[in-house]
């Protein structure tokens, strides 16, 4: 793939990071506020994103839209019968999300905003991912 083909990924990432900062969803304070149910801020942003997403996915599916390479867009379904994985794994993620006040995307956007200390949670998250890779065969899913 040539550089110009990567440009679209770079630009979409740039918009993603910019919006994460400007909507303040990267803020530890906003996460604290959300889990206290003190403001509609986070629920409004995530809720609106889901509404836009539902409409987009429906348009993609009903019109059989193709991606930029002309291939059909398919969204592989997740296996909802793996209840343990989603509830337990989700709860572990939730503990970390409330503690750190940032999920994976915001960690990198905050790093870009000049918060160099974010390299520490980023490295810790990579270690967490690696640990999951090692423990995966032994964990209930």
């Amino acid at each position: 793939m040539k550089f110009t083909e990567y440009l679209k990924y770079l630009l979409i990432g740039l918009v993603f990071g910019f919006v994460l900062i400007k909507s303040e969803v990267v803020s530890w304070f906003r996460i604290q506020e959300m889990f206290r149910f003190d403001s509609i801020h986070m629920y409004g942003i995530i809720g609106l994103a889901i509404i836009v997403g539902i409409i987009s996915v429906q348009i993609i599916k009903r019109k059989n839209l193709k991606d930029v390479d002309g291939k059909a867009i398919t969204i592989p379904p997740k296996d909802a019968s793996q209840v343990t994985r989603y509830i337990l794994g989700g709860s572990i993620f939730g503990l970390g999300w409330a503690l750190l006040g940032a999920c994976p995307g915001p960690m990198f956007a905050l790093l870009g905003s000049g918060l160099t200390i974010m390299v520490i949670p980023i490295l810790a998250a990579l270690l967490g991912t690696y640990t999951y890779g090692i423990l995966r065969p032994k964990l209930p899913h």
């Binding site: 995530i46 994103a49 889901i50 836009v52 997403g53 539902i54 987009s56 996915v57 969204i75 379904p77 997740k78 994985r85 989603y86 337990l88 794994g89 989700g90 709860s91 572990i92 993620f93 939730g94 503990l95 970390g96 999300w97 503690l99 750190l100 006040g101 940032a102 999920c103 994976p104 995307g105 960690m107 520490i120 949670p121 980023i122 490295l123 810790a124 998250a125 990579l126 270690l127 967490g128 991912t129 640990t131 999951y132 890779g133 964990l139």
Partner: peptide, 27 residues
């Protein structure tokens, strides 16, 4: 610990806020 739990949990659950809450619920 916060970073570790986010990384471990996101992989265990097969997605994070953008993956499950936004993209997954959208589908």
């Amino acid at each position: 610990v916060g970073g570790f739990l986010v990384g471990f949990g996101a992989r265990y659950a097969g997605g994070c806020t953008s993956g499950h809450a936004i993209s997954g619920l959208s589908d």
